[in-house]
Design a binder for these strands. Structure first.
Lengths: 228, 228
DNA sequence: GTCTATAGTGTGATAGAC
DNA sequence: GTCTATCACACTATAGAC
């Protein structure tokens, strides 16, 4: 980029450094968790003095917020990748697995995103603006599926789609959260729990083929659903 | 207690003071969360010097552990109260509600019990002894219900009872955990989510009467059903 | 912009006098 | 047993020289 004014050069450099800080922060968080990301440690890692950090971020919390948004963006991207799956049941299946996989693959990031007391990643302005809740965007993709399922008459008419979406979300979050914090939940492997949860909230019709009329029985993985 | 030897007197006093410390700790945690329970603050609250605390507790973590066990004991007690409910479906219903109510009524205690990174309330010896996981006792009461349900042929034969129990537990935990951390989950009231979850994991057959044959549809006791 | 130096506050835990 | 005093840290954030 040869023809750049001094002004552009400056801001470009700034952006790069900000990105660098963020990158190192991300690594530290991934390895040791946000709790152990201190400004000193971060400064040492990027080979600057602690004070320099405050030229790019107002506070430690702002770094948290940035990393949090990054995480949500990544998660949302993997969700969007599944958007192309036509069959809503199969899509739901894929999204659920993806969600849990994300949590298990990056426990500390997941913690920062979903398991930290609310205030951490919030700007004062965000507190007012409800739409800023970043999880909402992701959740809405799940909700969409339930809307479709409902439209295709695969859902009992009394169940509100968004409520189902939140219910399933809570279920998946519970699985991840318990797994991350306690060595417990030892009895049942996570994969099994996810299967069961999908069955519970919507028998998954794993066999790609929607058949609305027939009583649900999705034998692919699980031969029977007599409970519903 | 007039006829108490000096020895007994001593240990009795010790026990009382320990209880006092624990009581104040409990209050602080309930109000401000365990994170903000410092030895200094605690000492001031009981009007002793910080050093005195270490005569009764080896460390701050040991206080955490004690409070944690207290919490589990309380929760388990409310569960045991429901044990007398004969109909397993109704019992499951009651337990689930109780669980969530507990979490919402005492968020900070719940956090300490279930949402804190594992190491907090663990003794080195506990780490080895798996049975020491205190949640296990509570969970087993839920598992029992599923065993009964299975025995009564209310459950599909492929579903392992303990797996179902853990699945439902994860679901309830997810509801509580999301509610405690984010102001989000705004769309659907918690009560509704719990209803849906119970329906999902086992349509509750609230109408006391087990009827294995009929397809489950349980609007009996819950008039509020519009959402479901 | 970047540094050094430091203010200011917090923490858990302990030594040693009384 | 209880206290005072303190160790040995950690932290965020800022002031002021260069």
């Amino acid at each position: 980029m040869p023809h750049m004014g001094l002004q552009e050069r400056r801001t470009e450099q700034r952006r790069e450094q900000r990105e660098r800080i963020l990158g190192v922060s991300r690594d530290i968080v991934k390895r040791e968790g946000f709790a152990s990301l201190s400004m000193r440690k971060l400064a040492e890692a990027i080979d600057y003095s602690p004070a320099a950090l405050y030229l790019h971020f107002r506070s430690r919390g702002e770094i948290a917020r940035a990393l949090c948004m990054e995480g949500h963006a990544r998660l949302r991207e993997t969700f969007l990748a599944h958007t192309r799956i036509a069959d809503p049941a199969a899509r739901l299946n894929a999204m659920a697995r993806t969600y849990v996989e994300f949590g298990l693959a990056e426990p500390e990031t997941y913690r920062l995103m979903f398991m930290e007391p609310a205030g951490l990643a919030e700007t004062a302005s965000d507190a007012v603006d409800k739409a800023a809740e970043p999880g909402a965007a992701t959740l809405s993709l799940i909700a969409d599926v339930f809307v479709e399922l409902r439209a295709a008459d695969w859902l009992p008419p009394h169940a509100a789609p968004t409520a189902c979406a939140e219910g399933l979300w809570a279920n998946l979050h519970g699985i991840v959260a318990l797994k991350l914090n306690r060595a417990s939940l030892p009895e049942t492997p996570v994969a099994t729990l996810v299967e069961l949860s999908l069955d519970a909230w919507f028998a998954p019709a794993n066999g790609t083929e929607p058949r609305g009329t027939e009583p649900r029985s999705n034998s692919a993985t699980r031969p029977d659903t007599s409970t519903r």
